[in-house]
Design a binder for these strands. Structure first.
Length: 800
DNA sequence: TCTCACACCTTTGAAGTGG
DNA sequence: CCACTTCAAAGGTGTGAGA
């Protein structure tokens, strides 16, 4: 995927590769400074190597030394000139250097974030920005994103991308001998352990459409760290790690979708050439790109104003969408950054997508789900403007550039086939939506002043309910394996059908007028698309009219105790139960309606792990995903009253790693990480499951590693301590038990709590059993025969 | 990393008992 | 017939040796 510096998508495919052999080229300087290569065209013999003319000693090596490299299309202009020429040292206020405390959301709203600015290291980090310190190395990156993660690497000489593993890259990066210049500028690291160390500046999060307009429920469904489009649930462009060796250069380009960029230098240095996105400049840029003369012409020379900025360790750089830029790496560098779309430069963003159309950029180099995103944005504006109509504006402001942008966007959505070809299924009536928004904008009061406490019309604020509920209850919603109907441009039909286990497609039920005030909004109504009953013509039955269903994990503390050390679950061929057991407290169901409860266990990511030095580390790419099964609670279907009466326990659920297992066990791979999910289906017959409304919940503390033997001693100890079946392994238990048995002869009667901790009965055993989290719940009314029936049903369900 | 026999334990449910 | 007890079988544990 093309990012910050990537112009590979704009490189003309028609440009012939010269494949010249050149002489090298080694500049060793005390300052670790510039290495610039110059190839004379039409020559396969003479190569000029230009170092930093002021500080580098030039050295020439003969090709006989074995240092030859094949380079294609190296620039014929002298990049060193461009790095040092005064031509680009303009100071007309277009680029500003500002203090970190001046970076506020309101300032960005006022200015629309149209000009680049830099926060120097001395000024501190912009509010909210979190990045690793300068000791952080590429090895650390490798450790945290996985050695086997395949990454796109740009060959600097061709500006085209190739793939290698993170391990290969780290080795390349740290080695002294390189025969090609490679550059990593498109490693997106969300959903990897590295992600936790990175936070974009506050204002970015407040503006970013992914945060403000993309359905959060779809975003949280993303579990994979890689950027595979088939698994992507949201535009995964928020956190990038860029690693460049000295001499890397990315030619002039515009970031996809007209995204704006934040960019923090953790190590090394960067040189940017920046060109404002005026009509004239963009037009020249398109011509330059289509002409395929990138190697001969430095685009900065073609325009009136091209600014150069030098960035050093600790600097943070902000580049607005649409700016044409090139990047050079004078020192080996490590950079973290991210991209975002926002509401105050909609026209600029659309302009860039038009350029991408003209220059025929490949789909994989575009902003993912751009079309879907703008539909969600429009819907969000409609909803909030309507809300404002009724409830008043509060602190929110609707600014002129915003309205102007939205009106242009509406026209595009009305007219453009591209924009109409990929409308998310959540947008029920696109025409009506656009009409409504037009009317709302027509009558909306436009603000001219943006005060210090003003807030955007659409903001993250409106989602904090979801965030806080998620934190509080540790619930997150898993909706689907595919967020919406994909644009044919992005994904083919076969792409959809290859995911056999895609059962659910979400329909987000949002009440028009109100924001919901309970955590039930975490739970969406999900309707199976694949299994939609043709006769029912996609009528989604709400799970509950008042949408008030809540599910809590009842043995949360125990799960958390395990989770803290990385829960492990033993798997054997015949199937082993989970401990702790999945137990839930359900409320808010309609007491008289019937429900089915199901559990499935899905991979938490696509990695396999190793337990090394008391911690789980990513060891490679995950094995193939075994066939997905659903475990139906044996008491299903049953009334809401029944489910709410007491704790709902899935203690009979077993996991196994025997793929040929014909039983009802859930199949998992050893040394992989899994996440159980609970589904509530409102239906009175198990056969009707595919056509009924779902709700799906995930409790993150129930995540576990599947193992064939325990890895962590702490986990073993916790299991022994809490699982009654493992009582025999508790310290001193054997002798204690013997003593107690002996003593019991004198006591005669001991009390044992039954499985529900109620109605004690007399037992012949010796020990006194106490109630607690670890008590195994039995089935009140479940006999072997009806369990069997259910299992047969599950089989049928799986087979259907 | 995985498998298996094992000791030690809980759970289950049929049979027994008494009112 | 019901409530309760008894008890053996079934089955859920982690261990540790061996593959």
């Amino acid at each position: 995927m093309a990012v910050t510096e990537n112009r590979s998508h704009l490189a003309s495919p028609s440009t012939p590769a010269t494949n010249q052999r050149i002489r090298i080229i080694n500049t060793k300087t005390a300052h670790d400074d510039l290495l610039v290569i110059r190839v004379l065209p039409q020559s396969n013999k003479v190569v000029t190597v230009v170092g930093d003319k002021r500080r580098c000693a030039e050295k020439f090596y003969d090709e006989d030394l074995g240092l030859n490299i094949n380079l294609h299309n190296i620039t014929t202009f002298d990049l060193s000139d461009k790095v040092h020429s005064d031509t680009f040292d303009k100071d007309d206020g277009s680029i500003s250097y500002i203090n970190s405390e001046d970076i506020t959301l309101q300032n960005m709203m006022r200015t629309g974030f149209r000009k680049p600015f830099i926060v120097r290291a001395e000024s501190g980090k912009p509010p909210g920005l979190r990045v690793p310190d300068s000791n952080f190395t590429v090895k650390d990156v490798e450790r945290l994103v996985s050695s086997t993660r395949k990454i796109d690497v740009m060959d600097v000489s061709t500006q085209l991308s190739l793939q290698m593993t993170m391990h290969q890259w780290a080795k390349y990066f740290d080695s002294d001998k390189r025969d090609t210049l490679l550059n990593v500028i498109s490693l997106e690291i969300s959903q990897t352990p590295l992600c936790k160390l990175i936070s974009p500046p506050d204002f970015v999060r407040e503006l970013d459409w992914v945060e403000t307009a993309w359905p959060p429920s779809l975003k949280v469904a993303q579990t994979f760290g890689n950027n595979s489009l088939t698994k992507m649930k949201y535009p995964k462009v928020q956190k990038y790690c860029l690693m460049s060796v000295r001499g890397s250069y990315t030619d002039f380009h515009v970031d996809f979708g007209g995204t704006s960029v934040w960019y923090h230098i953790v190590a090394g240095a960067k040189v940017f050439w920046l060109i404002p996105p005026t009509e004239e400049n963009l037009s020249k840029f398109v011509k330059w790109t289509l002409a395929g003369k990138q190697d001969d012409i430095f685009f900065g020379d073609l325009v009136d104003k091209c600014y150069r900025v030098n960035l050093y360790v600790g600097d943070t750089f902000f580049l607005p969408g649409g700016w044409i830029h090139a990047v050079y790496t004078p020192r080996k560098s490590l950079v973290f950054g991210g991209k975002f779309l926002h509401s105050y430069n909609i026209i600029g963003q659309l302009q860039v997508t038009a350029i991408e159309d003209v220059t025929k950029v490949e789909a994989r180099y575009l902003y993912p789900y751009f079309v879907q995103m703008v539909w969600f944005v429009v819907e969000k504006y409609r909803r909030h403007l309507k809300h404002i109509e009724v409830h008043g504006k509060g602190n929110t402001v609707l600014l002129e550039q915003e309205v102007e942008g939205l009106n242009v966007l509406i026209s595009r959505l009305e007219e453009s086939k591209t924009f109409q070809s990929a409308i998310p299924i959540q947008i029920r009536n696109p025409k009506l939506l656009l009409q409504e928004l037009k009317d709302l904008l027509l009558h909306a009061e436009i603000d001219t002043i943006c005060g210090d406490f003003s807030e955007p019309i659409i903001s993250r604020e409106r989602n904090t309910l979801l965030d806080s509920a998620r934190k509080l209850h540790n619930i997150r919603l898993i909706s689907t394996d595919r967020p919406f109907k994909m644009s044919p441009v992005v994904s083919s039909d076969s792409d959809v059908s290859e995911d056999e286990d895609v059962l659910l497609l979400p329909i987000i039920e949002e009440k028009e007028e109100e924001e919901k005030s309970t955590i039930t909004e975490l739970v969406e109504v999900i309707v199976s698309d694949k299994f939609t009953n043709p006769s029912s013509s996609r009528k989604e039955t709400p799970l509950n009219e008042d949408n008030n269903v809540t599910v809590e994990i009842s043995n949360k503390e125990l799960w958390q105790a395990f989770c803290k050390h990385g829960t492990e679950m033993i798997i054997i061929k015949a199937g082993r139960r989970l401990f702790p057991v999945l137990k839930f407290k359900v409320s808010g169901l309609d007491p008289n309606s019937k429900y089915v409860f199901l559990v499935d266990i899905v991979p938490a990511d696509d990695c396999w792990y190793r337990f090394c030095n008391c911690e789980w580390i990513v060891a490679g790419e995950g094995d193939h995903i075994p066939p997905k099964r659903m475990y139906v609670h044996p008491e299903s279907p049953n009334t809401g009253a029944h489910w709410m009466k007491e704790i709902l326990s899935f203690h009979k659920l077993k996991i196994a790693h025997n793929v040929s297992d014909a039983g009802s066990n859930m199949i998992v791979n050893s040394m992989h990480r899994y996440q159980p999910r609970v589904h509530i289906v409102q239906c009175d017959d198990i056969y009707k499951i595919p056509w009924c409304a779902f709700r799906t919940m995930v409790f993150t503390e129930t995540e576990f590693f599947a193992v064939t033997a325990y890895q962590s001693e702490k986990i073993t100890q916790l299991k022994i301590e809490h699982n009654p079946f493992a009582k025999g392994f508790r310290a001193g238990t054997a002798t204690q038990a013997a003593e107690e048995r002996y003593n019991s002869k004198n006591i005669n009667v001991t009390i044992v709590l039954d499985s529900y901790g109620t109605a004690p009965f007399l037992a012949a055993g010796g020990a006194i059993h106490t109630s607690g989290d670890h008590i195994q719940h039995t089935q009140h009314n479940t006999t072997k025969s009806n369990l069997l029936t259910h299992m047969q049903m599950v089989e049928q369900f799986q087979g259907s």
